[in-house]
């Protein structure tokens, strides 16, 4: 019984809920709490997968009534498989962290070598150093890490007014300060730990967009929303950005009826509406996140644990 409950919960949390959450638009009004909700949903789905592995064999054996010895060893085996899942997840996390750090360090090295010596006095007070790449594409991005940098291309500087540049710098500094890279890396790690046929990029991409909105809000609080919105429009050279140019991510995005242009329209649209505190919504979303994590444990796992623990093999010396 517990197995079915946990399995159903796991399926709902990894298939149904992400689909609904990705289509929802109320998330745009409370992007920060929405990211927390995504984290809770993802963690809860991992927990229910581990839960199923732990519970299913034990329940099966008990149903077959094979006697306490077999029951105990099946439980130990189940623990081992659950341990394997957790280990795989940790391994994947370590790999993602290591690879992205290496890649960023290399990227930062090259950016430093290629950057214009003088950046025209553009600097965000107290922020990461700015680098200017003389390239033909309008780009603005940040390199998180111990020695963070904000990178603008020459084409971007040419296309943007001073106000717009300040707004973009504030946006990138918000990413760096809040370590949005770590949030994205955690979702990447889960994505990569899930077997190929089951994985979905929906959570990763939804969270990426929500983090952009969080940074937009931070920039809007420092500067004004007008230059940020116009900068977003000015930087979009991709009238018909080919999804094929961005690889698998782009293809999935198209199937999900989500496109870079659509994402940008959502961001610009929010910036054109007056900022609201949305206290009630934020509190509700955070409450929902806590519930998603706590309720399954309380209602499904705890009763099972109470039932299963006594059947563990006695440890020597007890």
């Amino acid at each position: 019984m517990t197995t079915l409950l946990l399995g159903g919960l796991g399926l709902a949390l990894s298939l149904l809920v992400p689909e609904m959450l990705a289509r929802a638009r109320w998330t745009d009004r409370a992007p920060g709490p929405a990211v927390v909700l995504w984290q809770a949903v993802t963690l809860a789905s991992v927990l229910s997968a581990v839960g199923v592995v732990l519970v299913a064999p034990e329940e099966l054996v008990r149903a077959l009534d094979t006697g306490p010895d077999v029951e105990a060893w099946v439980l130990v085996g189940a623990l081992a498989v659950a341990g394997l899942i957790v280990t795989r997840l940790m391994w994947s996390t370590a790999g993602v962290l290591l690879r992205s750090r290496r890649r960023r360090a290399r990227h930062a090295d090259l950016v430093d070598l290629l950057s214009r010596a003088e950046t025209g006095g553009l600097q965000h007070p107290g922020g990461a150093p700015l680098r200017v790449l003389d390239g033909p594409l309008p780009l603005a991005y940040c390199l998180p890490g111990r020695a963070p940098r904000v990178v603008l291309s020459g084409a971007a500087l040419q296309a943007l007014s001073a106000d717009q540049v300040q707004a973009i710098l504030a946006h990138e500094q918000a990413h760096l300060r809040a370590r949005h890279d770590l949030v994205l890396e955690s979702f990447t790690a889960v994505y990569q730990a899930v077997p190929r046929s089951l994985r979905s990029r929906v959570p990763l991409e939804s969270v990426a967009l929500l983090l952009e909105m969080v940074a937009d809000d931070a920039a809007r609080a420092r500067c004004s929303p007008v230059p940020l919105a116009s900068a977003l429009a000015a930087m979009s050279t991709d009238g018909d950005l080919g999804a094929q140019d961005l690889g698998p991510a782009g293809r999935v995005a198209r199937r999900q009826v989500r496109t870079p242009q659509g994402d940008r329209r959502r961001r610009v649209g929010r910036l054109q509406r007056p900022a609201t505190a949305e206290r009630a919504l934020r509190a509700a979303v955070l409450g929902l996140a806590v519930a998603v994590l706590v309720l399954p444990t309380a209602f499904v796992v705890a009763p099972w644990l109470a039932q299963a623990l006594p059947s563990l093999p006695p440890l020597p010396g007890w």
Binding site: S100, Y141, L184, A208, T237
Partner: peptide
């Protein structure tokens, strides 16, 4: 990797 965050794309 979550290498970067864009404002503009290509």
């Amino acid at each position: 990797a979550a290498l970067v965050h864009f404002v503009g794309r290509v």
